[in-house]
Design a protein around this nucleic acid. Structure first.
Length: 991
DNA sequence: GAGCACTGC
């Protein structure tokens, strides 16, 4: 058996020969010496260049030499391991770390050295973890030192100011909004008039008009003429009259260049969130919404949906609530408000129950006050003595912030001192904090630095019924630590449906019921199924509008496209019927809508009019719109699901669950008794809808979650105590990927690389790419690319009416190499323009997304420093950047098939298409790497770069056999090495 | 030649 040294010399000789055409003995020795001295391909290049500069293409020589060495090293190793390789492979996947490695028949230096390396790697991993802990301690100290001085004071001041301001702005806000509304209405009416005239002239010019009709037409023309003259006069004479901004004059005029405060980190996001919080607090509604309709309209609806009332959702506690008027509620003192909450009478009972039981399930409707009150009760009962904290998790950032602010006010302390919150990009707590609100993902991250959560005496997992990925993982972890920390109390708070399930999971924990506060909602079903839910929605809206008393309508549609369509139809119908019915204010809302248009949803409805809000699921939980009396629910939503076999995500329209349908109808009963119109039959509700939505954990890729669990020391992932276990295939795929990326070794143990990867809150492939970027000297660039990829394809804004402009603007960013480099270019240009908002608008780029990308980038940059990766930048290194990407995403490669001009993935041979938005759509490169695979109308690859197949062998020789890339002529791979490595099967990558 | 439902770290 050849020794390592002989083997090395042999490989060097081969490469030298193919490089120079001959082998000189001294050179051979010298290069072999350099190889043994070098720790990476880059250092080898440096050495070679230093010693024998000018001998030709040093880079490609070294690259190919290094590859051959890696391959031959592996070949040596596999010779001993082939027998039990498969067993080991699966052992690693199942991560039964107890299983001992099968004894080698022949113990020898290579396998021993591998064992040594493993021990060394594990040792280094643990040392690394220790260093991280030390850093964390240091960080806490720093926070403690700086905390009081700056941010908390400011935050508290800010909130106090807002509180005072709110009282002042309210009347102004109303006037302002009324004024805006009138301005817009004038424009609308004019357009309408113009349209009418045109219609009548063009459409009916062959039918003679009656006298009355002719007179009306003439009248309309006169009115229009006056209106136009008026505008013209104002323009000409420059008389400052009532000014109305023009629709198509200077569209960008109103946008202002960012000032310095805006450039500060988080500014845009913070403002947006503050806006949301503010809106959530304000309860502005139309005062006279209960006014009955004065007259009967002689409108005959073209079509009608027939509804039958089936049941009504009972209201709770609503009779004794007199303060329907939100302004009356404001007058109550904080103390009175607290006492009026449904939870108040149960205070003592609850405290007793927490004393008696370790785990308690709280079942309570929204509006019972559980989120704000329970932590305070526990504080009163002494659970925060001895510096211990009460922690409360929320699924959403805005909720964590606003609830913390509310509780701070109730306890009259500064936000960030005794009461604080912690969310990504923002930690508003101090060493004094005893009640801490946080997002569930944040608590999960805390597990990494404090696995026993020793600083908490009580943990409340709120909104558990929402079953987010993070809460589901928390359940298992929290159940686990509760076993060896009997002093830790757990409260799981959930809506009615799931309480029993949680109770069973937590070893039959008692359920504590708290009544909510809600108005009754009548529920109507259609008599027969509706074929086209969009037109059924439109008809129902109009039906409600003409037959029902005033009150706003909320419509749930699955996505942006449906919403736009519905709005369009509705506007058209309204135009036709405008003289025959009351005014209808149409307001769409979905997450990708620009912020200012989102805010319009919250504007109070003008007196006598009716607002109809057409929303996605965003209105189901994330935001609450006041004044909604009617809900229209077609019963569909878009849902993401991940197929582990194909690695493909799909976003498809599916029927909602019963739980979700009830949640939606509940939206009608928040301010007064309401009605919910379901556009499906009662039978369908009973028999066709699932009880609950499939929890997220069973629908998503688990890569990051598994890595996190691994780094918490949970080795047996497949048997982890999940409330609902994710599909077996999903877990196996995640483990397989982590193994291939080098985050786990062949025994399923976390490696040093894996420990580093776990620090990043991104997909493992991306964290690998980030870490690998160091050796290609382009970590700055890869950092930017990662951040841009994280903002979820919402960078480019493409309004329907300016689609062509938007496309041209996008085309300007096209870069050779592919989409990742295009994203880099976008970010860099934006940064060069001083992160300007104006620049974004001109280039049809979403400012909000870019700001998010900047925040993500800052965070990742901090983490790079934390895991001891040097930041280097080389913008010219286009190949290096793509190689770095490849070393993370070598799983995601497709190549053009020989027949038919379509791409197929390398491993599973699926046909996949380049997304038409890609910059490489027309080029169709032979080899390409994709960021993600999504099934929409077809199987598309999104975010693509072109790669050279030889890179695959370079970055992932353990994963790719040479056979798989053989049909391309690879310049960099000498043939003999190719043959040798063709024998390779999977082995553990050395990193 | 298509279309990103919503969160979160």
């Amino acid at each position: 058996m050849a020794s390592m040294k002989d083997e090395t010399e042999k490989v060097v000789a081969e490469n030298l020969h193919s490089f120079m055409g001959f082998v000189e003995k001294n050179t051979l020795r010298f290069i072999t010496h350099l190889v043994q001295k070098s720790s990476s391909v880059n250092s080898l290049k440096n050495e070679v260049r230093k010693s024998c500069g000018g001998i030709g293409d040093v880079d490609s020589f070294c690259d190919s030499l290094w590859n051959s060495l890696k391959l031959s090293k592996r070949r040596l190793r596999t010779q001993y391991e082939e027998d039990d390789e498969d067993n080991e492979y699966y052992a690693a996947i199942a991560s039964t770390s107890k299983k001992t490695k099968v004894e080698k028949k022949e113990k020898n230096d290579t396998s021993e050295s591998e064992d040594d390396e493993r021990t060394k790697d594990l040792k280094e991993r643990d040392e690394f973890a220790a260093r991280l802990r030390e850093k964390d301690k240091q960080k806490t100290r720093n926070i403690v030192e700086n905390s009081d001085k700056k941010s908390f004071e400011e935050a508290a001041k800010r909130l106090k100011l807002q509180d005072e301001d709110r009282k002042k702005i309210l009347p102004q806000l109303r006037i302002e909004s009324r004024r805006k509304y009138l301005e817009k209405r004038k424009d609308d009416q004019l357009a309408l008039l113009e349209g009418d005239i045109l219609d009548e002239e063009n459409l009916f010019n062959d039918t003679p008009l009656s006298k009355a009709e002719q007179a009306e037409l003439e009248y309309k023309k006169t009115v229009l003429k006056y209106a136009k003259d008026h505008d013209k006069a104002r323009d000409l004479e420059k008389i400052q009259r009532y000014h109305i901004p023009k629709e198509d004059g200077k569209p960008f005029e109103e946008y202002v260049e960012v000032d310095d405060t805006e450039k500060a980190p988080n500014a845009e996001q913070r403002k947006w969130e503050e806006g949301r919080v503010e809106l959530a607090k304000l309860s502005v509604g139309s005062k006279d919404k209960h006014e009955k309709m004065g007259k009967n309209y002689d409108l005959v609806l073209e079509a009608e949906v027939e509804f039958v009332q089936a049941l009504s959702l009972e209201g709770q506690n609503y009779k004794k609530e007199k303060e329907i008027d939100p302004f009356a509620a404001k007058k109550l003192s904080i103390e009175e408000t607290r006492k009026s909450l449904p939870i108040y009478p149960f205070k003592q009972q609850l405290i007793d129950a927490v004393h008696d039981y370790q785990v308690l399930i709280i079942e309570g409707e929204t509006g019972s006050g559980k989120t704000t009150q329970i932590p305070q009760y526990l504080h009163d009962a002494g659970f925060t003595k001895g510096g211990k904290k009460v922690g409360c998790t929320q699924p959403r950032r805005v909720a964590a912030m606003s609830v913390a602010a509310r509780v701070a006010t109730e306890m009259s302390v500064k936000l960030g001192n005794e009461v604080g919150y912690s969310i990504r990009f923002e930690d508003c707590t101090s060493e004094r904090t005893i009640i801490k609100y946080m997002t569930d993902g944040m608590l999960l991250r805390e597990f990494l630095s404090e696995p026993d959560l020793d600083s908490y005496s009580v943990l409340i997992i709120d909104e558990a019924h929402e079953r987010t990925l993070h809460t589901d993982i928390l359940f298992g972890l929290v159940k686990d630590i509760a076993r060896f920390r009997p002093d830790l109390k757990l409260l799981i708070s959930s809506a009615t449906l799931d309480a029993e399930k949680f109770s069973t999971f937590f070893d039959d924990a008692p359920v504590f019921r708290i009544p909510g506060r809600r108005f009754p909602v009548d529920i109507y079903y259609t008599a027969a199924p509706e074929a086209d839910y969009i037109s059924a929605c439109v008809v129902t809206i109009l039906q409600i509008h003409v037959t029902q008393p005033l009150g706003d309508i909320l419509v749930f549609l699955p996505g942006q496209e449906e919403i736009e369509q519905c709005v369009e139809i509705l506007q058209e119908r309204q135009r036709k019927l405008v003289s025959k019915m009351r005014e209808l204010v149409i307001r769409p809302i979905y997450a990708n809508l620009p912020t200012d248009m989102q805010a319009q949803v919250f504007e109070p409805t003008p007196p006598g009019a009716r607002k109809v809000v057409i929303a996605t699921n965003i209105a189901e939980t994330s935001l609450t719109i006041d004044g909604i009396i009617y809900v229209i629910d077609p019963g569909y939503c878009k849902q993401n699901s991940f197929n582990p076999r194909t690695g493909m995500e799909s976003l498809v329209v599916v029927p909602i669950s019963k739980a979700s349908a009830n949640q939606r109808s509940g939206r009608a009963g928040r301010v007064a008794a309401g009605k919910c119109f379901r556009l499906f039959t009662a039978w369908a509700y009973q028999h066709e809808l699932d009880d609950a939505t499939i929890p997220e954990i069973q629908r998503v890729h688990m890569g990051n979650a598994v890595l996190m669990l691994k780094s918490l020391g949970i080795n047996d992932i497949l048997h982890f105590d999940f409330l609902d276990p994710p599909p077996h295939d999903t877990l196996v795929l995640a483990l397989e990927q982590l193994y291939a990326l080098g985050a786990l070794n062949h025994l399923g143990e976390l490696t040093r690389l894996g420990r580093r990867m776990a620090e990043f809150p991104v997909d493992p492939m991306m964290s690998k790419m980030l870490i690998a970027s160091e050796q290609y000297g382009c970590s700055e660039e890869v950092l930017t690319i990662s951040a841009m990829l994280s903002v979820n394809a919402s960078v480019f804004y493409r309004p329907k009416d300016k689609a062509i402009h938007a496309d041209t603007a996008r085309r300007n960013f096209f870069t050779p190499g592919g989409d990742h480099l295009m994203l880099l270019k976008v970010y860099n240009q934006w940064a060069e323009c001083g992160f300007s908002r104006q620049w974004c608008i001109e280039n049809f780029i979403q400012y909000r997304s870019m700001c998010r990308a900047r925040d993500v980038r800052d965070q990742l940059q901090g983490l790079m420093d934390r895991v001891e990766i040097e930041l280097k930048s080389d913008p010219t290194e286009i190949v290096g950047i793509r190689k770095a990407i490849t070393s993370g995403y070598f799983y995601h490669v497709a190549r053009l098939s020989k027949t038919g001009g379509q791409h197929k993935t390398i491993k599973s041979q699926q046909t996949v298409l380049i997304h038409p938005n890609s910059s490489l759509f027309e080029e169709k490169p032979r080899w390409l790497l994709y960021h993600e695979l999504v099934l929409t109308t077809k199987e598309y690859m999104r975010q693509i770069i072109e790669i050279d197949p030889s890179w695959l062998i370079e970055v992932a020789p353990h994963y790719y056999k040479d056979k798989e890339i053989e049909d391309t002529s690879s310049k960099k791979m000498p043939k003999q090495v190719g043959k040798a490595s063709g024998e390779l099967t999977r082995t553990y990558p050395k990193l």
